[in-house]
Amino acid sequence: MVKINWHTLSGHLILIIGALFMTAPVWVAFMSSTHSAETLFRDGLQVWPGGHFFSNYNEVLFEEGGVMKKVTASRMLLNSLTLGVGFAAGKVVISMLAAYAIVYFRFKLAAPLFWIIFMTLLLPLEVRIIPSYEVVAKMHLLNTYTGLILPLIASATGTFYFRQFYKSVPEELLEAARLDGANAWRFFIDILVPISKTMIAAILIIMFVVGWNQYLWPLIMTTDENNYTLVIGIKQIYQVLSEGGELPQFQKAYALTILATLPPVAVVLVFQSWFVKGLVESEK
């Protein structure tokens, strides 16, 4: 006799409903992006695939004037990727080095400096956005990748995580390395970075997604269409839609939205396997 486990069944049911609830909007956006502008205008949102998948995405990705006046979605994708990767990598490098200094070098100001860094958690970008803008503008870095990324990469959160992690590394490891003739730099590169792999992967994932979704700073920073990120592009295209007198190009907006969600999803999927592997293997 098959015994029905109601507990498991109800659990799965709730999970399935939750998953459907979360993915339904993505599905609708994706399906709507495969229809023509007329269909969308006449019949509203679509839940089944239409016949314009290739033409819509081709137009958005590669044709000048497809979405904006001249910039294409592929260019915006590149900009977003640069921002996401630069932002995440920059944060990891800066916070690893800062945490290394704070934990392993005994200098008098280590503790106060750490707390100052920690307190900047209270000051998000939005609070300092005007002075930051002024600094970047005076350095003639508007509409450049450097200007886009550099003001964002100092990270109290990252520094804090790495500090906690380094503190949990047994001191004997450092001592063994010193006896093995490793200087401060070698210890960092040969020992500390490899054993932080898990942490690095975790912070890269989180920070890439945060960087990718940056909105306010790129919005203020970039005036040239060529420097738009995808997120800004979406905002601009909706603005055009609501202002223009032509037939609204909703299918392109949806295509752009779908494109904007793909890279973070890919990054999470790829790094997740590393992440889990790291967690399983790094038993000390």
Binding site: P170, E172, L173, E175, A176, A177, R178, L179, D180, G181, A182, D190, I191, P194, I195, K197, S282, E283, K284
Partner: peptide, 21 residues
Amino acid sequence: VSPSERNVAMVFQNYALYPHM
């Protein structure tokens, strides 16, 4: 003299092996 130049070797209580090597 720095530890590495003393040419001594130490065995630690918790072994202190480099976990990733």
